[in-house]
Write a protein that binds this DNA or RNA. Sequence first.
DNA 1: ACGACCTCCTGACAGC
DNA 2: TGCTGTCAGGAGGTCG
Length: 277
Amino acid sequence: MPELPEVEVVRRGLAAALTGRRISRVDVLHPRPVRRHPDGPEGFAAALTGRTFAEPRRRGKYLWLPLTDGDAVLAHLGMSGQFRLDPPGAPDVRNTRIRFAFADAGREVRFVDQRMFGGLSLAPGGAELPAEIAHIGRDPFDPEFDLDESVRRIRRRRTGIKRALLDQTLVSGIGNIYADEALWRARLHYDRPAERLSAARVRELLGHAHDVMAGALAQGGTSFDELYVDVNGSSGRMTLDVYGREGRPCKRCGTPIVRERFMNRSSHFCPVCQRKR
DNA sequence: ACGACCTCCTGACAGC
DNA sequence: TGCTGTCAGGAGGTCG
């Protein structure tokens, strides 16, 4: 499931595959992925037919596909969303939800999503930045990302540091996997109070988050299973230091990695390198 | 305004 | 085999 590096891999794949192409037909096969579109599946399809895509953009885990007229299609992959490129007429893979066909009769773009936490919507006037994601903070790869401001806002939160890291309004793009990886690199326990950490410590943590995601991007992303793949169906090759390594030795000190339930998900950490206090 | 909690879905897998 | 429970990398809405 996709966090910033995986979404960026998808964005690059779409940039090469759909920029400048005119939509000739849209088939919405399941209503849920377009639930945010007020006119329903047929309205969504009708609104896009005949329009032309410009170059896809991204903020954090959100992707948007600008149209040449200034609107955009906003997309989120949720936990299991994928975009695929398929020849016209090729059979749908399981969980195919939306198909875009193009006037040039080239490969179709298909949105596939098992769990349908993600989806697509039309964002009027959203080519520069869809209004729906104006509240999402800039991510560490954004040229205008303000590190000091992010550090300040994180330290103002009266909550655990991992909760703050996962709050997409403070800094975007970091999900459960890369949060655990960044905390391990920074030797911080996930539930350390954010306001008790020094600015230098939080700055260092965000640096690790940037670095671990940059490494993942260079490897084409991280994948455990088939739920995250690029537009050609390939999964990433990034290997992780803590996430998913419960019971296996910490790569620094050899202590078995612990997994705890946290925020209805899992936190993985080394009980020796990452002490709560 | 902020933080905690709940929920939207499908599917894989373990255990009985 | 087939049931049930658990788990999965996200984020918006609601409530206190």
